[in-house]
Amino acid sequence: MAEPKKKTLISHGIASQNRRARYDYTIGETMEAGLVLVGPEVKSLRAGRATLSEAWAGERDGALYLFGCTIPEWQAGSTVAKFEPGRPRKLLLHKKQVNELIGAIARDGATIVPLQIHFNDKGIAKVVLGVSEGRKKHDKRNAIAERDWARDKARLMRNRG
């Protein structure tokens, strides 16, 4: 009788992606930031259970926080280290980077959108942030049309040659 397959944990690589962000926003500059997490949150991230679809980054008390990111509780964890799944999580950046992002929010009305959470080569959780502007509905349609045309053009050139 075969043993049930155990789900492997992510030691390095992408833990969660916000696929909708590139559709809803025009992404400008991107930067990588650290996250302040508690132990069971790291376990849940390694299991690939985080949700970034409604997440955004904003300023609170002179620091940047990640709001709306849901990391569900680790089921195998004890009751000692409980945490709130949707709590704001502090982002670890240099002061110059924090001031630059806060300035982009205040000056340009930009939105800081998390694009993905991943584990680097050392196994540390990082979040990739994008400075972005929201797209209108007609901009989204144009982006879809351009992407479709590029795909069709590549198909035509491949079949022709």
Rank of each mutant, 00 (worst) to 15 (best):
N142I: 15
D24I: 12
L156P: 00
W149C: 03
R158W: 03
H12M: 03
G77S: 15
E84I: 07
L66K: 12
L45H: 04
R147H: 12
A63P: 00
A110G: 01
E54S: 14
L45D: 01
M1I: 11
I144W: 06
R19E: 15
A143K: 13
G103N: 14
N18H: 11
V131W: 01
V128M: 06
S44K: 03
E146S: 11
R49C: 01
K96D: 11
I27L: 15
Q116V: 00
E32D: 14
I14L: 04
I14T: 14
I71P: 04
S53C: 01
E73T: 08
W56H: 12
F119R: 09
P114L: 11
G134V: 07
L101F: 03
V38P: 09
R155S: 09
L35N: 13
N99I: 04
G103S: 11
E84R: 07
A57G: 14
K96R: 14
A76V: 01
A110N: 10
I124N: 02
A63N: 13
K90L: 09
P88L: 08
I27T: 09
K6I: 04
V128H: 01
R20K: 15
A106Y: 07
I117N: 00
F83S: 08
A33R: 02
C69Q: 07
W74L: 07
G109W: 12
D24M: 12
A154M: 09
G130F: 07
G123Q: 11
I102L: 10
R20T: 14
V80K: 10
S16H: 05
S11G: 05
K136F: 15
D121N: 11
L35F: 10
L35Q: 13
V36H: 13
W74F: 15
K122W: 04
I71G: 06
K140E: 12
G13A: 06
L66I: 05
R60K: 12
A47K: 13
D24A: 12
A21S: 14
W56T: 12
A63E: 12
G13N: 06
G58F: 11
G34K: 03
D139I: 01
L52I: 15
A63K: 09
S78R: 09
R89K: 13
G58S: 13
G161Q: 11
K82P: 07
L52K: 10
K90Q: 13
E59D: 08
A47D: 07
N99R: 13
G13V: 07
G134I: 05
L156D: 04
A50K: 03
D152E: 07
K5A: 14
R155D: 13
S78E: 10
G58D: 13
D108M: 00
Q75N: 09
P40E: 11
E41W: 03
I102H: 05
P88A: 03
A143I: 12
V113W: 09
P4N: 07
L93V: 00
M1Q: 08
K5V: 15
M1E: 12
D148Y: 01
H12G: 01
G134P: 11
G134L: 06
L93S: 01
P4E: 09
W149L: 15
A81V: 10
S16R: 04
I117C: 00
C69K: 06
Y65H: 10
G109H: 08
K90N: 06
A110P: 00
P88G: 08
H12S: 13
K153N: 09
A125D: 03
H138S: 14
N120R: 03
